[in-house]
Simulated assay, not measured.
Amino acid sequence: MSKECIAGVSYSQGLAHLAVLEVKEKETKLLHLEEFINAGQNPLWYLEYLLEPKLRVLKKVDKVSVGLDMADIILHQFPLDITLSKENQNEHIHWELSNLVEGYQSKDYIYDLHVLESNPENQVAEVLAVAVKQLQIYRLQENLERKKIALHIVDAAYFGAEQSLLTNFPEVKNKSVVLLYCSHNRIDVGLEIGGTLKKYRYGIDRTADGVVELVKDVVDNVTLNEIYCSGPAVPSDIKQPLQNAFGSKVLMVNPFRQMITTSTFISYDTFAGIEHRFASAVGLALKQI
C-alpha cells in the first residue's frame, strides 16, 4: 500500500471536527486536528479548511471522508420481507421513506441499508435505512474534485464513531455495549452486540433523565457490559446517571487509542479530554470501502 494522506471531517450544527492522517501499510500517523465553527453562509463550510487550505499539511490531502450531521439524514427502522426481489425491496424501502418525508421522491435520495436482525423462519429482517439527498453528495464530490481531492466515504456520523469504537476497543466484539453519538440537538443510541448494530433509537431530550430513558428503550432486557460516548456534544453530567441506571462502566470513545501508531502533530495535547469529539471523523477516514 502506498502512502496516502486522508482527512476525515464531521460536523454538527455549526461545529466541525477535522482529522488529517497519513496512512501506510503498517503505520498510521496523525498529522493534524482542527475544531472550528461555521463562520459564513457556505453550505459546505465544514470543508473550508480543505477547499481553501492555508496550512501546508492540509494541501497534502488526497482524499476525504465526511460524517454527516445526524440531523441531515433520514434514519428509519422497519421490518423488511427478505423474500422480495432486489427491485421490490428497493421499491418497498422508498415507500417506507416516503411515509416519513413530505414530498419524497425516490430519484432524489440514495440510501444504505443496515440489517439489524434477521429471522429466516419468518422471512423477515429488521433493517435500518439511512438516506440522504443525492444533491448533497454530488456537491461534496464536485467541490472536492475541483481541488483534485477524492471523496472517500460519506456516512452518518454515528457510523464513523462506531468504526472508531470497533477498531480502538476490539474487545467489544465479544460484548454487549451501547454507543451514544451526542450532537448538539439530539442523541443517537445504538445497541451493539458482538460488534454489530442490533437496535437503534434517537431522541432530542439531552437531559440526563431523557438520555437514560432513551438508552433503556434500546437496551430492553439485554445485560450491558459497557456504555461508550462519542460526538461533539456529550452532556457533561451524563456519566454518573448512566452508571447508576445500568451498573455499567461509561467510557469515552478515544479514536486515537489504537488506530494511530505515531504522530507529528505537536498540538495534540490541546485536545486532551475531548478526543471523543473526533471519533466520527477519524473512524470514517480510516474505514476501508
Rank of each mutant, 00 (worst) to 15 (best):
L140W: 14
I149D: 03
K63H: 02
L116Y: 11
N174F: 14
G195W: 09
I73C: 03
L30H: 08
N90T: 12
Y268L: 02
Y202C: 07
K175L: 14
C5Y: 15
S267I: 00
H114N: 12
G160S: 08
V124Q: 15
V282G: 07
I227E: 02
G195H: 11
L251F: 01
Q89Y: 06
V222C: 05
F256V: 10
Y11V: 00
S248T: 11
L224A: 04
L47G: 06
L128D: 06
Q77T: 14
L15F: 05
I6F: 07
H276R: 04
A125E: 03
E22L: 14
N122T: 12
V177A: 04
Q163W: 09
N90C: 04
L165F: 11
P43W: 12
G194K: 14
H152T: 09
M252A: 08
M259Y: 06
H32W: 14
S248D: 04
E96I: 12
N244R: 13
A7D: 06
C182M: 12
E48L: 01
E102F: 11
Q141F: 14
G40L: 05
T261R: 09
K173D: 05
H152D: 15
A129L: 09
V253I: 13
W95K: 09
S230T: 02
L75C: 09
L116W: 12
F265C: 01
S164P: 02
Q258G: 13
G210E: 04
I274N: 07
A39W: 06
P241H: 10
G283M: 10
Y158E: 07
I6Q: 11
G203V: 10
V124P: 05
F271D: 02
A39E: 15
E25L: 14
V215D: 05
K173Q: 14
K86D: 14
M1Y: 12
E226Y: 02
I137D: 13
A125K: 07
E34C: 06
L135G: 04
I137M: 13
I274T: 12
D108G: 04
G283E: 10
A233I: 03
D269C: 02
Q41A: 13
A161M: 01
K216Y: 03
P241Y: 09
E142Q: 15
S118H: 05
G8C: 09
L97I: 10
G40V: 00
K249M: 03
S12A: 12
Q240A: 13
H17A: 11
P255H: 03
I73K: 08
Y138T: 08
V20W: 05
K60C: 04
G203K: 11
S236C: 00
K198L: 03
D62Y: 07
